[in-house]
Design a binder for these strands. Sequence first.
DNA 1: GCCAACGTTGGC
DNA 2: GCCAACGTTGGC
Length: 160
Amino acid sequence: MEKQRRYWLLKSEPESYSIDDLQRDGSTYWDGVRNYQARNFMRDDMKLGDGILYYHSNTKPPGIVGIARVSREGYPDPSQFDEKSHYFDSKSSEENPRWIVVDVEFVAKLDETLSLPELKKDSSLEGLPLLRKGQRLSVQPVDAKHWRHILKRAGVKEAT
DNA sequence: GCCAACGTTGGC
DNA sequence: GCCAACGTTGGC
């Protein structure tokens, strides 16, 4: 059976790594995720070519700023082995790595941010995990119908 | 296994 | 800067 392409939302603080940084780099590995639920999504569910909504948090206004895609499936997060890294984890080992990254490739930057307040007002986006109260996960699933609606609103043609 | 204390996220 | 909502840690 043909595998269903899935869609995701990745949060990043633009001060640490923005959509402009991703555009400049072309692709990056999504390191530093230290939440098991988010880790599990990256390890088990994110597949090559999956669509990504790029979200800026902790900024004014927060919102969706671009589109990306998964360009490599889960592998051990190098930062967990680096003693100098903020993300170093002494309980992790090369033989039994605890944390996982995927590679993320730039696809498009939106002309305008789809801000969180705008997203909240959009009745078509009911049920989007991002809009749930208290939702802090930095890696979240997005339904195909929400993905299509958001890309349409943003005026982005699907680039895969 | 419970739960209080503490730390983090992230909108406002 | 505030604080709600979690997640984690560690004593018991």
